[in-house]
Design a protein around this nucleic acid. Structure first.
Lengths: 218, 218
DNA sequence: AATTGTGAAGTTATTCACAGCG
DNA sequence: CGCTGTGAATAACTTCACAATT
């Protein structure tokens, strides 16, 4: 069997298409062209067509894409059609905010378990989900069929949390801790590091460019 | 004035080097090789050398990099050495969490102003920073010399917030709202969209695709 | 007539391989 | 000898241009 090898960048765009398609669907627009999707997503029409073509031919030449059909197809490609269960580890400020945000907004990726080591938090609830001790993590994840882990603990705890999640059967991790996780082959890690985002943004500010220490010209 | 052509991806790695260098410095390690930095950051030694070489020759052949010197140089390249001021717009769950996190952790990028339209929040404080109404945004950002804007408002408000920030002199925006911001040339926007992250992670889970190549973190 | 789907060309980023230097 | 710095090769991704299709 051939390996299609689809760019990670393309996968990241699929949820954007999904969101815009839902907006069109809500507005009862039955068909959209790649040009219209481009207008709303900010990506080029060619890129959109290419991204979709990686997974098959979903459009009709001369017409466009059926919004309802394409939306379903993308959900299916991402594995969202059956619903995906996630576990959150770390109920601090950020974890708490993410849990509330996610639980209120997402239905396709649902946080079904929350873990924290703080005895004061264990037993309390965030939007109906009870906070449990890490000792229950592996068993609960296995029992619930959790596939995505979200790590919002301090950097020093992150690796241990990742290992528990993986032992619990998690295959993809969203890591907010400023730490490089070592994971076995087959586990996907996506890092979101606020410090990195803010510090790299500083570069695009005129302050960093002004006082140019020019190295050596060639 | 023209910019040298350095990959955005390389800029994003600089803060990672900075963090690891600080760890080495804290451990009183005076010199590190690109191989050691690679070990700790997860990037390849060649990539690290190339990234650093974009800005000049900071190492010593046959020896390595002076941790203190390189750390200072990277701070300077990013424009962190003078400190960078940021404004947060939207003091909801996520905004609140980010403000607390950032104010407690970051010294080089500092949130100096927080804005929210909710009258109940205006006048209250988050870690010593008073929440102000959007009507004061432009003037406060100008007066304080704010360079970075962080948007944590609902999608429907995001574009208006971006415009206020830009009117206030902001050149770089970290946008957490699920919306495509239209900004003038010269303004840099970095989007972080939790829905996109979670939905795209679902793809790397066995439920969606049977044979996937994975285990790469970014 | 209009718009998709796609090989080819172009662009950008990463890895290789080794020269250059301490 | 060891490790950096860098042109060359490779790989990854995007854009172009147009044939295919309804």
């Amino acid at each position: 069997m051939r390996k299609p090898k689809i760019p990670d960048a393309a996968i990241k765009r699929l949820p954007v298409y999904l969101r815009v398609l839902e907006e069109f669907r809500a507005a009862e627009v039955p068909i959209v062209s790649s040009a219209e999707l481009a207008e709303r997503t900010g990506f080029s029409p060619e890129q959109i067509r290419k991204d979709l073509a990686y997974f098959g031919a979903f459009g009709t030449r001369g017409v466009g894409y059926d919004t309802a059909l394409l939306s379903r197809r993308i959900s299916r490609i991402l594995g969202l059609d059956q619903g995906v269960k996630a576990a959150l580890v770390g109920a601090g400020n950020l974890g708490h905010a993410l849990a509330r945000y996610s639980l209120s907004k997402h239905k396709d990726v649902r946080i079904v378990a929350i873990f924290d080591a703080d005895p004061a938090k264990i037993g309390t609830e965030i939007m109906g989900v009870t906070i449990r001790p890490p000792s229950e993590l592996v068993e609960v994840c296995r029992r619930e069929g959790v596939r995505i882990g979200i790590i919002t603990v301090p950097a020093s705890e992150a690796q241990a949390c990742a290992e528990l999640l993986i032992a619990g059967g998690v295959e993809a991790i969203l890591n907010f801790a400023p730490a490089k996780l070592k994971v076995p082959e087959g586990v996907f890690v996506q890092n979101i590091d606020l410090t990195i985002e803010l510090q790299s943004l500083a570069y695009y500010t005129s302050a960093s460019q002004s006082d140019a220490e020019v190295s050596r010209a060639e």
